[in-house]
């Protein structure tokens, strides 16, 4: 990992002192600049004052909830948001993603997982929202403009729906995409709850693009949340 010219600034919003301290030491050792806040209100102020490149937001905050922080932040900023949730908190996690959070990590997580997520989110932020027209992941190449997909050099024929799903996943490579976001983008808002259809199409898509053996390498399931197209290490 080469050092960027300007240190990237990460804002940590978490009420637990221990987590703040641990994140600070992990991140500063990787040359990030760290700001932290222990409440949602303080976090929003810091987001205005410090203009962070990324926000790590704990969902279970006292007072103003993590979800509220997420909503407020999204009202005026497109800064990547990584939410931290506990294991049994699927509903909050999905709600945060639907409110515009970019990814999540379930506590307890390892330093490696945290850094990988942060790297992926910052990479996307550099490229900007327009994104590349061609996404290459391992042996998988998705040409978004020409609607062409190749696996290990050979072209794969996808249906329109399958390609649309893959396109949404590619534009958000390495980030979780909620089922609802996929459904709304591909089929339209009125289909936002048709999980069975979505799973069937994803299953067909996998059969076409995944390497033999039947086990997905590219399109991973995020249980209860959605899917993630992984670039791999």
């Amino acid at each position: 990992m080469g050092s960027p010219e300007r240190p990237r600034r990460v804002l940590v919003i978490d009420d637990e002192e221990q987590i703040r301290r641990a994140l600070r030491s992990i991140l500063t050792s990787r040359h990030y600049e760290v700001a932290s806040a222990d409440t949602g209100e303080a976090g929003l102020e810091a987001a205005i004052d410090r203009r962070p490149d990324l926000v790590v937001l704990d969902l279970s905050l006292p007072g103003m909830s993590g979800l509220d922080v997420c909503r407020e932040l999204r009202a005026w900023s497109s800064v990547p948001i990584l939410v931290l949730s506990v294991r049994d908190d699927d509903q909050d996690k999905i709600a945060a993603l639907d409110l515009g959070a970019d990814d999540y990590l379930t506590k307890p997580f390892s330093a490696g997982e945290l850094l990988a997520r942060i790297r992926a989110l910052l990479r996307r932020a550099v490229v900007g929202d327009a994104g590349p027209q061609v996404v290459t992941i391992g042996g998988l190449m998705v040409d978004l403009a020409r609607r062409v997909v190749t696996v290990d050099g050979g072209e794969v024929r996808l249906t329109r729906t399958e390609f649309d799903i893959l396109a949404v996943l590619s534009r958000n490579a390495d980030r979780v995409v909620t089922s609802r976001m996929l459904l709304e983008t591909v089929w339209g808002p009125e289909y936002s709850s048709d999980l069975v259809t979505l799973r069937a199409h994803v299953s067909h898509l996998r059969r076409k693009i995944e390497p033999s053996g039947g086990v997905p390498r590219y399109v991973l399931t995020e249980p209860g949340v959605g899917f993630r197209l992984v670039a791999g290490d």
Partner: peptide, 9 residues
């Protein structure tokens, strides 16, 4: 298969 996919990742 999808569970194994997450494991191998």
């Amino acid at each position: 298969a999808e569970i194994l996919g997450s494991a191998i990742a």
